[in-house]
């Protein structure tokens, strides 16, 4: 076996954001994920690579999907997984994140997958711990593995992201998925538009190199990929837009509106969907929809990230 593979490689201890990654690093994760995808098609969906490693999923926000995806990924690599769910209410009055971190460190985990409602929490944890930290979503800031699986899905279908036009539709302001995808797709050479009502588009977002549209038809015109974001009705209705009905009428993806897209355009959604609000059922289940592929690729991407980080530089190896 060639030793050349050792020369290049992944040196990071943590995966905290897409913003911090180079194009080459993103490419490396996506290539690795492509290779890992095959494992999930085998009868025996397991390789021994991370045998003896401990992966803790630490979730301060409920998310069955992401947690399960990480857990399956870790198990397919033969790692031991432990799931900890913390209710946010106990965080505020209970021990500090740093206390929690040091307690976990004492149990010598290798990788901690953190979901937290506070932006930057994974960075704090990563700084305090020897273990690798994977950001599984922090507040409104980033959700790097989601963007990676989105990029993997589009790359699979389109061959490359270079020169593609992505339109992200909906609640950009409160979306970590939007931020990570803006950074990721831009780095990979795509053009990115954000589409939504003025209240849901953060002021100054043009500084991230995206174009802003408040008209859905205009915003998705010619797009190769349209990504609808989940609308959190409880939080937004009345304050950020008048009603769900009005939102659906002006910003919901329907078959009629989608005629504006490029031929063979892809429809994506990070889930869970509100059918009939940000996306109509016939679009969600229609021909361009790759929503289920996104879920499948999520496992492969997370296997790739776990694999690469487990070989990343540990604190004590730093010179």
């Amino acid at each position: 076996m060639s030793e050349v593979a050792w020369q290049k490689g992944w040196w990071r201890k943590d995966l905290l954001s897409i913003k911090e990654l180079s194009r080459e690093e993103i490419q490396m994760i996506l290539d690795t994920a492509d290779s890992f995808k095959e494992i999930s098609t085998r009868d025996i969906k397991k390789v021994p690579t991370l045998r003896g490693k401990t992966v803790i999923t630490l979730f301060y926000e409920p998310s069955t999907r992401t947690r399960t995806s990480f857990e399956i990924a870790a198990k397919r690599l033969s790692a031991d997984t432990i799931n900890i769910s913390v209710s946010t209410s106990s965080v505020v009055k209970g021990e500090t994140l740093l206390d929690t971190a040091l307690n976990l460190q004492a149990m010598e985990p290798d990788i901690i997958v953190l979901r937290h409602s506070a932006a930057g929490a994974p960075d704090m944890l990563a700084r305090a711990l020897k273990a690798s930290v994977i950001n599984a979503g922090d507040g409104f800031r980033e959700h790097p593995t989601q963007a990676l699986l989105d990029m993997m899905t589009v790359r699979e279908k389109k061959g490359s992201l270079e020169g593609l036009l992505l339109a992200i539709v909906g609640d950009i302001a409160h979306s970590r998925v939007a931020r990570s995808n803006i950074y990721g797709f831009k780095k990979m050479g795509a053009r990115v538009r954000v589409v939504g009502p003025g209240t849901l588009i953060p002021r100054g977002i043009e500084s991230l190199g995206v174009e802003v549209f408040h008209d859905l038809r205009e915003g998705i015109r010619g797009a190769d990929v349209v990504m609808a974001l989940r609308i959190q009705r409880e939080r937004l209705e009345g304050a950020f837009f008048p009603s769900e009905r009005e939102y659906a009428r002006f910003f919901g993806l329907s078959l009629d509106v989608l005629r504006e897209m490029a031929p063979n355009a892809l429809i994506m959604h990070p889930g869970p969907m509100n059918r009939g609000v940000e996306i109509t059922p016939d679009v969600a289940d229609g021909p361009g929809s790759v929503i289920l592929e996104q879920v499948t690729n999520g496992v492969a991407v997370r296997m790739a990230v776990l694999y690469l980080l487990a070989g990343g530089t540990r604190g004590e190896d730093l010179h």
């Binding site: 913003k19 932006a119 930057g120 922090d138 507040g139 409104f140 800031r141 980033e142 970590r176 931020r179 953060p202 002021r203 100054g204 977002i205 500084s207 991230l208």
Partner: peptide
């Protein structure tokens, strides 16, 4: 509120 809060998601 500005480009840094946008980037950090705060």
């Amino acid at each position: 509120e500005g480009e840094v809060s946008l980037e950090l998601g705060l």
